[in-house]
């Protein structure tokens, strides 16, 4: 099991990553962090033994990204703004890549290792995420500008 001090030290960063992955409400992100911690302590207790801080953090982030991929529904909160809606609308693998680079300030190499893909795949996902998000925001802006009788109804 990793040292408790290391886990406690990483908690704020893990919460930030989880919150970006899941969107609001924040409780959903905290539940995800809790699950990731339990996975490390109970299911794979030997995983953190002898691991460096970077390795441990990468492992926890990878676990969070996986949990968000399999367990978190993509339903933005009712009060979510256009950016948050566009972010949650992305495929979870693309969202994780974008967040690792833009929020967590990872290098491409670190992000690729965290997500278990090579650099080219990571860049592909990142570019696609940015393009999809930009298109979504553009559509949102157009629908806001349009008169009510022409508004896009989904």
């Amino acid at each position: 099991m990793p040292h408790p001090d290391a886990l406690t030290r990483f908690l704020p960063d893990l919460r930030r990553f989880a919150a970006a992955l899941t969107g609001s409400p924040r409780s959903r992100a905290d539940e995800l962090v809790l699950r990731a911690l339990r996975d490390v302590m109970v299911k794979a207790p030997e995983a953190g033994d002898g691991a460096g801080d970077d390795q441990l953090k990468r492992g926890l982030r990878a676990n969070l990204a996986h949990l968000a991929h399999v367990q978190v529904p993509r339903h933005p909160a009712a009060n979510a703004n256009a950016f948050e809606t566009a972010l949650l609308d992305l495929p979870s693998t693309h969202r994780a890549a974008l967040i690792l680079i833009c929020v967590e300030d990872c290098t491409y190499e670190e992000a690729a290792q965290t997500l278990g893909v090579n650099r080219a795949v990571l860049i592909g996902r990142l570019a696609a995420a940015r393009q999809l998000m930009a298109r979504r925001l553009q559509e949102e802006a157009r629908s806001d500008e349009a008169p009510p009788y022409l508004r896009l109804v989904k």
Partner: peptide
């Protein structure tokens, strides 16, 4: 997008 992501989630830490 990058600025919004940093501004929205950066302070959570």
């Amino acid at each position: 997008q990058s600025q919004w992501l940093r501004a929205s989630f950066g302070r959570i830490a």
